Amino acid sequence: MKIKTGLGQDSHAFCDTNKLLILAGVVFDYPKSLNANSDGDVVFHSITNAISSITGINILGAKADTLCKQGVTDSVEYLKLAFNDLNKWKIQHIAISIECLHPKILPMIEKMKLSISKLLNIALQDVGITTTTGEGLTEFGKGNGIQVLSIVTVIK
């Protein structure tokens, strides 16, 4: 058996648009959205980057930018591309750390875990999500955006 671990990160600043705030495919009732060409789902972007670090195939950047120009702005589609690149590797666990002052993430964690587990075909208990405000030491902890770090562990 072989094991690999991938690390991914993404962050976006808040902006005032009429877009929805979406995290892990879940819509949050919040008056601001994230500044991005896509829907700005930093959780899915972070997981996509973690998988890309395993496969060596970058999705975010040129591929995602091309899709955005074609009108594909749903981050689910980017994550699906990365997931398909895993080929015979199977996801065993995903650890996610979210840093932001707001919105409050805790009440939505179970919905977010369910969304991730369904999309990536893994057990709900194999998705871990933690949150922090970082004690206000960063722009995210001061309420100016959201940062997400993800670790994906796979086996073959």
Rank of each mutant, 00 (worst) to 15 (best):
N37M: 14
G25W: 03
K142C: 11
F140W: 05
I57V: 15
T132Y: 05
S117I: 01
A64F: 05
T48D: 13
I122C: 10
V72G: 13
A62C: 07
E77H: 11
T132A: 07
A50F: 10
Q9F: 13
T48N: 10
N18S: 12
L101Y: 02
K104C: 05
L86H: 11
D74K: 08
S117D: 05
M108F: 06
G40K: 13
W89A: 13
V43C: 06
V127R: 10
D39Y: 05
I96R: 00
N35H: 14
P31A: 04
A13D: 11
K113Y: 02
D126F: 02
K19N: 15
L67P: 09
N84D: 14
K88Y: 12
L114I: 09
G61M: 13
I91H: 08
D16M: 11
L21W: 06
T138L: 01
D10M: 13
T133G: 04
C15Y: 15
F28T: 10
V42W: 01
A95F: 02
A62I: 15
G25D: 09
D74M: 05
G25T: 11
E139Q: 11
L34M: 12
P107E: 05
G128S: 14
E110V: 02
T17I: 12
G61C: 11
L120M: 08
T138Q: 04
Q125T: 12
T48Y: 08
A64H: 09
L34T: 13
W89Q: 09
A123L: 06
K90S: 10
D16R: 13
D41V: 03
S52L: 04
V27K: 11
F28L: 15
K104W: 07
G143N: 03
G25N: 08
A50R: 04
T66E: 15
G71L: 03
E99I: 00
S46R: 01
L86G: 12
L124H: 13
L114T: 13
G143K: 02
T73K: 12
L120T: 07
E139A: 08
L79K: 04
